[in-house]
């Protein structure tokens, strides 16, 4: 094969010298390796010249003298969109991520996005709270971090896959070929056995748990009554012990809700949720048995003339919390029952 020596210099000196063909060929061969680009360019130029010649000959027969540029224009129009031609030469469509790697790309995003942004956001929020930020700004900052992390995960995963899509390396080609080849009946995913979990409910539980954690950490400085300077809102004797336990259990509850969104209503999820509720209930049962819930010093500062021995408010609050927990347990049992009946 002799190398192409183009009839004309492919690089015109100024913009004014560029013919339509120059511009057309430049677009059509964009993105090709240099060696191949020159070859394709020479072939396309010869083709356009042939087409123009044929059209001029036909026009001469019809005694209708057409200008060379009009003829060139017509020939290029007949060749069609140079972008499409370039896509065809590159053997790739006008897409960022093609059908061969799309599923892997989606799989990676589906794995990373529900985990990495919430974890980084949650960790940031917790760190901010422990550093003494107020819960609203800590929450907002956590949400912002989660959003930024989500954008970055999506961007960089997409960049890598777009590169894989365009890579000529034989390894990548083999990987792309494998991606769809090793499918087997055994790989069919199991359908969640339980009924569908209402997403709103699960998200609501997660948000409620996060807000509760934020409140529990906030109240250590007095919460809304920080101005009284009377210490934590909840009685420190009881809650120095129970606070970490409750926070950890609530965090476990958040994870459990995420799992539930994935696997559907399952008996073991319900059992775990009930167990977590029981652990949270313990300190409140102790309150019903006579332990203090609220910090006496804060109460005294709020209501200077009150009877310090009166535990009615503590007991009422604890009973309220226990009612909510109990109701939640009943709901868990009902959900499992319902999904069994429908299955």
């Amino acid at each position: 094969m002799t190398t192409a020596n183009s009839a004309r210099d492919p690089k015109p000196d100024t913009e004014a010298c560029q013919t339509l063909t120059d511009r057309y060929v430049a677009v059509a061969t964009r993105g090709l390796p240099e060696e191949q680009r020159r070859d394709v360019e020479a072939e396309l130029r010869a083709t356009v010249a042939d087409m123009v010649e044929a059209k001029l000959a036909a026009a001469a027969d019809a005694a209708d003298p057409a200008s060379i540029e009009d003829t060139e224009r017509a020939a290029l129009r007949e060749l069609g969109d140079p972008e499409r031609l370039a896509d065809a030469y590159r053997d790739s469509g006008p897409y960022l991520i093609g059908p061969t790697v799309y599923r892997s790309w989606r799989q990676v995003l589906r794995t990373l996005l529900p985990v990495v942004p919430p974890l980084s956001g949650g960790a940031t929020m917790l760190a901010r709270l422990l550093a003494g930020d107020d819960p609203i700004s800590a929450l907002l900052f956590g949400l912002w971090v989660a959003f930024v992390v989500a954008c970055n995960v999506a961007l960089w995963v997409t960049v890598v896959f777009a590169w894989v899509e365009r890579s000529d390396s034989p390894d990548v080609a083999a990987m792309k070929q494998d991606a769809g080849a090793d499918w087997d009946v055994d790989r069919l995913p199991s359908v969640p056995t339980g009924g569908r979990v209402p997403t709103g409910e699960a998200v609501g539980s997660i948000v409620a748990a996060l807000l509760t954690i934020a409140f529990l950490l906030w109240q250590r400085d007095g919460g809304p009554f920080a101005g009284l300077d009377a210490g934590p809102l909840l009685d420190p004797q009881v809650w120095d012990l129970w606070l970490p336990v409750v926070v950890v259990v609530l965090a476990a509850g958040v994870v459990l809700e995420m799992v539930r969104l994935r696997v559907g209503t399952q008996r073991w999820v319900a059992v775990a949720a009930i167990a977590l509720n029981v652990v949270v209930a313990v300190p409140f049962v102790l309150v019903l048995l006579g332990q203090p819930l609220l910090n006496v010093e804060v109460m005294d500062a709020l209501w200077p003339g009150r009877d310090a021995a009166d535990g009615t408010l503590d007991a009422a609050l604890a009973a309220g919390v226990l009612l909510v927990l109990g109701w939640d347990c009943v709901e868990e049992v009902r959900a499992v029952d319902a999904s069994h009946r429908s299955a």
């Binding site: 094969m1 002799t2 192409a4 009839a7 020479a42 007949e78 069609g80 969109d81 065809a88």
Partner: peptide, 28 residues
Amino acid sequence: ANTLYPLLRRLERQGLLTSTWNTDEPRP
């Protein structure tokens, strides 16, 4: 033409076609 030219390249790459530049005529 849009389809044919890239197709010729692909077939050449697959070894189904061979190609030579004919420079005997004024237009290669």
